[in-house]
């Protein structure tokens, strides 16, 4: 009897989920803007930072999910670091590097960033809350946001040279 009930209940959950997502998808169809979700992050001082407060008032914002153990992520952040002063000068873009490291490597986040001379805003999403809300499955995953926090472009993985494509998009979108 319990088994039957459990089965019925699972079926009910599935039915609800499917109906829900199908209806929501239909409602949302054709609407392209997706806003940066609200979530609590931490800065390297342990202070809580709301994800919405990282947005750039004077231009676009790039957020990049990375981790201390991710080689392509560090390569990407190193390469962008070299051209970042120029990006700011030309477009006033702001770059935020969000680490998904856990306790094992959290204390390595600031030393890695500082020793490599990164000038980004460094934040930590240790419980992966924002990562899940943005459907990040592999890192590095880069998002470009406009002034009102809408995602206008995203990309995952990194090959040297990808930063040139990102900058072209930043320049184009900055003029809008």
């Amino acid at each position: 009897m319990i088994k039957i009930l459990k089965h019925k209940q699972n079926t009910a959950i599935k039915y609800f989920l499917i109906t829900f997502f199908v209806s929501q998808s239909i409602i949302c169809f054709g609407q392209s803007s997706r806003k940066l979700p609200e979530s609590e992050l931490k800065d390297i001082y342990g202070k809580s930072i709301n994800s919405r407060s990282i947005l750039n008032d004077s231009g676009l914002t790039v957020i990049d999910f990375w981790a201390t153990w991710c080689k392509p992520c560090i390569q990407e952040l190193d390469n962008i670091s070299e051209v970042y002063p120029n990006w700011i000068k030309e477009t006033k873009v702001k770059f935020v590097a969000i680490s998904i490291d856990d306790a094992r490597n959290i204390t390595k986040v600031a030393p890695i960033a500082n020793s490599r001379g990164w000038k980004y805003q460094i934040l930590i999403d240790s419980n992966g809350d924002l990562k899940r809300l943005l459907n990040v499955n592999n890192i590095p995953h880069t998002f470009l946001l406009n002034k009102s926090g809408e995602i206008i472009w995203q990309h995952n993985s990194y090959v040297p040279g990808d930063e040139d494509e990102l900058f072209e998009i930043i320049k184009k979108e900055s003029l809008k």
């Binding site: 204390t107 390595k108 030393p111 890695i112 500082n114 020793s115």
Partner: peptide
């Protein structure tokens, strides 16, 4: 950790 500029 201790990390001034260029050092960690």
């Amino acid at each position: 950790s201790y990390s001034p500029k260029n050092f960690g």
